[in-house]
């Protein structure tokens, strides 16, 4: 966990006003401790991603929330997908797991509708 000062010091060229606006827009969601922002690793990584979207990919702040919303939905789906896989692995008998896998392969090949 790091403070906003350290985050800015570690990211040369990061403008504090930009970062504060991203937080205000809820694009970055640091925690708070005693009234000041604290950034977890995921927040630091998210700031890095936003900067890459802005700078390397030239995406302006009008389009950014659309992309972030899709990214968030993508990862939410991936977490669910992993959780579903874990749940099947932990609860379903082996032969059911094999049947499920075979069924999915068949479907993907267009064998089942």
């Amino acid at each position: 966990m790091i403070s906003i000062e350290i985050l800015i010091a570690q990211n040369s060229g990061l403008d504090r006003r930009d970062l504060e606006r991203w937080i205000l827009n809820d694009w970055v969601r640091p925690g708070r401790q005693s009234g000041v922002f604290v950034f977890q690793e995921i927040d630091v990584a998210r700031v890095k991603l936003i900067r890459e979207l802005r700078q390397d990919m030239d995406i302006d702040e009008e389009a950014l929330p659309v992309i972030l919303s899709l990214v968030d939905q993508l990862y939410e789906m991936r977490r669910r997908y992993h959780a579903l896989g874990d749940a099947i692995a932990e609860t379903a008998p082996d032969d059911l797991q094999r049947k499920l896998a075979a069924h999915l392969v068949m479907r993907a090949r267009g064998g089942l509708h």
Binding site: E41, V44, A45, Q73, Y75, R78, R79
Partner: peptide, 30 residues
């Protein structure tokens, strides 16, 4: 630097769920 996907793919990523971190990810409807 740190890669967003490494965090967003596991429980840490719930912070950026659309319903907020407290939202359960599986509803009865799901």
């Amino acid at each position: 630097g740190p890669s967003y996907r490494n965090y967003a793919d596991n429980a840490a990523g719930r912070r950026y769920s659309r319903g907020g971190p407290e939202a359960t990810e599986w509803s009865a409807e799901d």
